[in-house]
Amino acid sequence: MTDHACLVVRAGALTTVQDLGRPGHAHLGVPLSGALDAPAHRLANRLVGNAEAAATLETTLTGCAVRMRRATTVAVTGAPCPVTVDGRPAAWGAPVRVPAGAVLDAGPAARGLRSYLAFGGGVATEPVLGSRATDLLSGLGGDPLSDGTVLPLGAEPAAPAWADAVPHPGPPAELLLPYRPGPRDDWFTAHGHRTLATERFRVSAASNRIGLRTEGPPLERARDGELPSEGMPLGALQVPPDGLPVLFLHDHPTTGGYPVIGVVPARHLASAAQAVPGTPIRFLPLRGA
């Protein structure tokens, strides 16, 4: 631990500490958690010379601002947003040297939802089960930031950042979600499967870090009732009784009693994390393999 820290001067709508989460504890009821847009989180860390597992800040829609106790290299990735240092424009998606006492402000997302702020040395809050991630389902890993929170930071890496220009896919205008059918695809009629594979859905405003909720035509079930609770993977398309699939994101419950019609590969979840409410969704069934 160093005396290095930053002060949260504008916490924004929902800003949390995130890293790569706590895999391997699902059998204890501990969700995976971690950055929803993992590639953006990893990139932010690379830009400031951190290991990819270092903790960053994940913002939601309105960004956040922090005052640095000491001069620090910071990078903002994920949802594109205006970045300023003491009010002067600074680069998004690139390392920015922030002087001691200066305020780094990551503004509202111009597109997408979640921006990531990496600090040289990483956010150094106390890890829980090997991770600093804030898990909004189980409450592990500390609360969302509030104005006045002081975040300890680690020692800055000696090595300079090595990336100087980075490609970024940008948030999706339309969310394409491939999925592998199963394990409970037999709980749905052929009509239900056709609905999922061919109809248009939209991202619901009720989405959060636990799941991306959808609006659209309900999927017809072949059987009623609930399943006995069973393990739920990241990317599960769980279908509650209203028939509208919920895409399980990183803070999803480890077990559940509603059938999973398919599973979206993890690499497609980053775009889901950046899809604002109202974004059209198409689900694409993967066959074979």
Partner: peptide, 14 residues
């Protein structure tokens, strides 16, 4: 494996 999750009637391996 990354997870071994027993439940009511199943064990989930990931």
């Amino acid at each position: 494996v990354t997870e071994i999750v027993p439940a009511a009637r199943t064990v989930f391996l990931d």
